[in-house]
Amino acid sequence: MIDTKSQTSCVLETRGLGVRFGGVVAVDSVDFSLRQHELRCLIGPNGAGKTSFFRCLTGQTTPSRGEVWLADTNITGWVPHQVARLGVGIKTQIPSLMNELTVRENLWLAARRTQPARQADDAADEMLERLHLAPLALKLAGQLSHGLRQRTELGVVLAARPWLLLLDEPAGGLTHDEVQQMAELILEIGRTTSIVVVEHDMAFVRQIAQQVTVFHQGRVLRQGAVDDVLSDQVVREVYLGKRAQ
């Protein structure tokens, strides 16, 4: 765990971050910063480099150049478990759970990594109640529907009590009601936690975001308040297509 109350106001920062896959530049010199308790959405069309950028933050991809800083710690080139051990909760694009373990076991394993056994038991039970998963506690994670897997994975991420959340498409594949619930939950968590959300669903983004960063061709195209950015002519052209004008 690292000290987030340090002198720097940024809890997450990238400096000139670049990712190259052979001849393809997926992320190109991205400077990005996130303040404490800020909720930032990363948006952009398919292939804009959001996920490659996200994977650099989580340690799943090693950047070709540039640096990633978590508060005062340079985590460039770190592997995912090292990043997670600093208190970062990571949710993947496709819900990633331990399929042959029960929902409660998934939550318990997440909680137990950061807490003693008894507290981990309480944390798992608390998360079951909070996310309305109690009736499914003994069900195998592999038997859950997509929506329930999304919710369970968020519970798994939260059970470890992270101070920074990196969420990749938390609303992907959810029904309208489930999207509402997810938005409320993220807003509630965002009061005490810094969050980065990669998302396609613009209605969802409008609901939760204070600030958005628009990616285009591996670069940051625009950055700012959600309404300002989404009404920007260039963003509308790039992200929504020229007809949207």
Partner: peptide, 17 residues
Amino acid sequence: RALAGVRENELRAQLLG
């Protein structure tokens, strides 16, 4: 249990630390 977690989903286990 952590080993069982790794067996079931190594990436998820890694992302939990």
